[in-house]
Computed example of a mutant assay.
Amino acid sequence: MKIKFSFLLLFISIATFAQEFNATVTVNAEQTGRTKLSVFKTLEGAVQDLINQNNWTDKDLESYEKIDCNFFINVSQYSSDSFTATIQVQASRPVYGSTTSTPIFNFKDNQFNFRYTEFQPLDYNPNTYSSNLVSTISFYLYTILGIDGDTFAPMGGENYHQEAKLIVNTAQGRSEGWQPNDGNQSRFRLNADFLSNNFSKYREALYIYHREGLDVMYEDVKAGKQKIVEAIQMLREVNNSRPNSILMRSFFDAKNNEITRIFSGGPKVDLTEVLNDLKRIAPLYNKKWNTIKN
């Protein structure tokens, strides 16, 4: 009986703590005009299993610590095993002391063409390129882990960004999005910027915004808001030296609603300077910034 009980505990531990993500995958094939084909639903399930049923780190996480993420694959053309598509990736992590979560990543990748045969196994091997589908999904998972790590400790996601770089190196020359000349919205550029010394202050701002800002608001809202102001001022400095970067765009694509909400109520802090910063750094969201009353 004792042996059986020990085995049961081991099984529960593995089942409960093994994976790092709570991922939802959606494949939209309306543009192909062939939505009834089973391959699209099979693809959806295969990618979701790849994410949710594999270990991506050596950490054991409680269920509430897992990263929620969404992968939206929009297929515009399909023929045989060839897919022309885009992918939108979103992720969030819990806010300490609350039941809410905060978005940490929101990114659309337009360079996502791949081959997939129905029921093809999807497995990630860090030393081997198997397909653009597996490499792209794995790349974004490690990028999300890197961002999540950066929000909990200064440069805390370094190992994960380095793992994403290994994927970039292995995939180079295989498909679009992995090379230096693939544009400013490529996977190559996203990873290179995260690992560049030019953006170390950006990553420091991620820590201040989340760990010293959001995560303290459960006990001191004003102190948390002041730290978020400080983080935005740091982002202004980064933007002054590297304007319109892929990191800055992805940050405000994820955070514009949250920032508007935080500064639109609760204890007041001086917003004169930070509102000017927001309008300069992220002018795309000026309508939202204009709704914030100082």
Rank of each mutant, 00 (worst) to 15 (best):
N198P: 05
K222C: 06
A192G: 01
K225H: 02
D220N: 15
Y207A: 10
K227F: 07
Y209R: 08
S200D: 15
Y209W: 10
A223G: 00
Y202V: 04
Y209I: 11
L195V: 03
V221M: 15
K225P: 09
R203V: 03
D220P: 10
A205Q: 07
A205W: 06
G224V: 07
K225W: 11
M217K: 06
N197S: 15
S200R: 12
H210V: 12
Y202R: 05
Y202F: 05
L195R: 07
G224K: 11
Y202C: 06
K227M: 05
Y207I: 12
A223V: 13
N198S: 12
Y209S: 14
D220F: 12
F194M: 09
V216D: 02
S200C: 00
F199E: 11
I208D: 02
H210Q: 03
F199M: 10
Q226M: 08
N198A: 07
N197W: 02
N191Y: 04
E204L: 13
H210A: 13
N197F: 13
N198R: 13
N197T: 13
S200M: 10
G213L: 01
V216Q: 09
F194L: 13
N191Q: 11
L206R: 05
K201H: 08
F194T: 00
K227N: 14
K225A: 11
S200Q: 03
S200T: 12
V216W: 14
D193A: 00
Q226Y: 01
L214D: 11
L214A: 03
Y209H: 01
Y218V: 11
Q226A: 13
K201C: 04
A223C: 04
E219I: 15
A223F: 04
A205H: 00
E219S: 14
N198H: 15
L195Y: 12
K225E: 06
S196H: 12
K201Q: 12
F199P: 01
Y202M: 04
F199K: 00
G213M: 02
